[in-house]
């Protein structure tokens, strides 16, 4: 119990340090790498909560592929961020208030892993027993994700698909419009 507390305190302090460093970061590549590090620490956090599947997803998607895609996309941005000159007192106050309210509410949450807490009473026992008897798969997460909640996962897949083709469509459109601009320029130059 005490070792868990030490590990959690360690991970939270690293996350806090990264968050503060993110506020100070003014170059794009620094921001992207810090976000990636934040995801990796979050993955460790999920492991301490015994959510191995979520940790796996966070490490591969949050820390891995999104960093690469961000870097690939941000090569087209200016290297330095403009210094923010507007007054940040009100947003800071808002964030602190919201954070305080959330922390205050978290005291009312049931203890993590408590068997008598409401979310473990409603449908979870059915899933745990059904995963063994009806589906026959040891990993309950997979049986919930692919079988009990198959509709949701179908929706997620379609969302990923739609997002992908939307980005492709935007970038392709940009390419054709660039070609148009270039050919118009050429026509104008030839006309002169």
């Amino acid at each position: 119990m005490i070792s868990e507390l030490i590990i959690n305190a360690f991970l939270v302090s690293i996350m806090l340090a990264i968050a503060i460093a993110l506020l100070k970061a003014r170059t794009v590549i620094y921001t992207v790498l810090l976000t990636s590090a934040y995801s990796l620490v979050a993955a460790l956090m999920f492991i301490t909560l015994d959510a191995v599947d979520v940790a796996f997803t966070e490490a591969s998607v949050g820390a891995g592929i999104s960093t690469i895609l961000f870097l690939a996309a941000m090569a087209f941005l200016p290297k330095k961020e403009e210094k923010n000159v507007t007054n940040q007192a009100f947003p800071a106050l808002l964030c602190l208030t919201l954070g305080g309210v959330l922390i205050w509410c978290s005291f009312d949450l049931p203890e993590i892993g408590l068997a008598t807490s409401p979310i473990h009473q409603h449908i979870v026992p059915e899933y745990i027993l059904g995963s063994r008897d009806d589906i026959g798969i040891p990993n309950i997460v997979t049986s919930v994700l692919a079988s009990y909640r198959g509709y949701d996962t179908f929706g997620e897949t379609i969302v990923v698909f739609t997002a992908g083709i939307a980005v492709l469509a935007i970038l392709k459109n940009n390419k054709t419009s660039l070609k148009k601009i270039k050919s118009q320029k050429k026509v104008a130059e030839n006309g002169q």
Binding site: I68, E156, G164, L168, L171
Partner: peptide, 22 residues
């Protein structure tokens, strides 16, 4: 099916960004 879509969306996005002309 999920694996096919996710992997190919990621590869397609990388191709699109890497060959994108600013």
């Amino acid at each position: 099916g999920v694996g096919l879509t996710v992997s190919n969306v990621m590869i397609a996005l990388f191709y699109a960004f890497a060959s994108f002309e600013s």
